[in-house]
């Protein structure tokens, strides 16, 4: 490769890297350092950046998409009309892709790990990564030569991922996906469209199906509800000691303004009897606190007092209702 070609590729790499919502500070410094080297660097970057931003490029890309709407393209995505909602379009692509993979390589079918109520387990994957799976959880793992994908069907899992530069590790939870950059992190699938992620070491990129990814670093927490990402204050329990593993691996759940239904789902992972809410409106009741979810009686007792709830242990289920004093009739 000639020096000129090398500069052009480096410059193009910077254009691509800078076009995202968040760049880490070390990359920003590296960029300035690269720009300071030579006027040839600066000129090439500037020209490529101007081209990247130019109306002419956007127009050319639009024409290309329209022109090839009916012809041969590698993936079905571009044949979809560009005005369709990107989320819908991503899902379609992902499904088509998954279907193709299944057809092409039936031998590489995923391994499925399930845990019963109250029984968490530790798993070591084929690539050496370790997973702690909570009770009443299900994880499907597919380790392929070019990527590793774990799908959290339900429940909660803590991942300590073996770093492999060329083989990304992806965790999916509903429409949320977490791309791993060599690291330890927790994924909690609280319900079908709600996922919480916390990072204990390294960094991960969080993708909620929209175009922007959020990079989470050590100590960062985020919650995805539907396709909306909210970052949260660092876990106070981790505090100065900077916990190496999440609370739940020791049977605790730190709730900060989460719906009661989420807490109940966690307790349910440890309770043989189903826990039911008598009044569906209770599901949305926001609760906060540190709960010993591995001990259902203790956890339920804690919310009974704090949220004026009535808890009845029936023969086939545990029933939760607003306490009578609170009902006003």
């Amino acid at each position: 490769m000639t020096r000129e070609t090398q500069i052009a590729e480096d410059a193009a790499l910077w254009v691509n890297r800078l076009d995202q919502p968040a760049i880490d500070t070390s990359a920003s410094r590296a960029f300035d350092a690269w720009m300071a080297v030579d006027v040839a660097h600066r000129d090439k970057f500037t020209d490529l950046q101007a081209l990247w931003h130019s109306d002419a490029l956007i127009e050319a890309l639009r024409q290309t998409v329209t022109a090839s709407a009916t012809s041969d393209l590698v993936t079905p995505s571009v044949t979809a009309p560009p005005w369709r909602k990107p989320v819908v379009w991503l899902t379609t692509t992902a499904c088509a892709l998954a279907a193709t993979l299944v057809m092409l390589i039936p031998s590489l079918s995923p391994a499925t790990y399930r845990t019963g109520i109250g029984n968490g387990r530790s798993i070591v994957l084929a690539d050496g990564s370790q997973v702690a799976l909570s009770g009443n959880s299900e994880l499907r793992v597919r380790v392929l030569p070019w990527q590793r994908v774990a799908t959290l069907v339900r429940g909660e899992a803590f991942f300590d991922v073996a770093h492999e530069r060329w083989r990304p590790f992806l965790v999916r939870s509903g429409d949320t996906s977490v791309a791993v950059l060599g690291t330890a992190f927790n994924v909690d699938r609280q319900d079908a469209t709600r996922t919480a992620v916390e990072v204990y070491r390294g960094a991960v990129a969080l993708d909620a199906g929209q175009s922007d990814n959020l990079v989470l670093r050590k100590g960062d927490r985020a919650r995805v509800v539907d396709d909306r990402i909210t970052t949260q204050a660092p876990n106070p329990a981790a505090g100065a000691t900077a916990a190496a593993r999440p609370d739940w691996t020791a049977g605790w759940f730190e709730a900060s303004d989460v719906p009661l239904s989420v807490l109940i789902a966690k307790v349910q992972r440890h309770s043989a009897k189903p826990i039911r809410l008598r009044d569906p409106a209770l599901a949305a009741l926001p609760v906060s606190g540190r709960f010993r979810v591995s001990n259902p009686a203790r956890a339920l007792n804690a919310i009974r007092g704090a949220y004026a709830l009535d808890i009845r242990y029936g023969r086939s289920a545990i029933l939760i209702a607003p306490s009578r004093a609170d009902q006003g009739s």
Partner: peptide
């Protein structure tokens, strides 16, 4: 061409393109 269109026209992130097309990030 497909990768480029996804990135510049549709604003997809590299990570999400990699996932959709089963390519590595590099």
């Amino acid at each position: 061409r497909d990768v480029f269109i996804r990135r510049r026209l549709q604003g997809q992130s590299c990570a999400s393109i990699a996932r959709d097309l089963a390519l590595n990030l590099k």
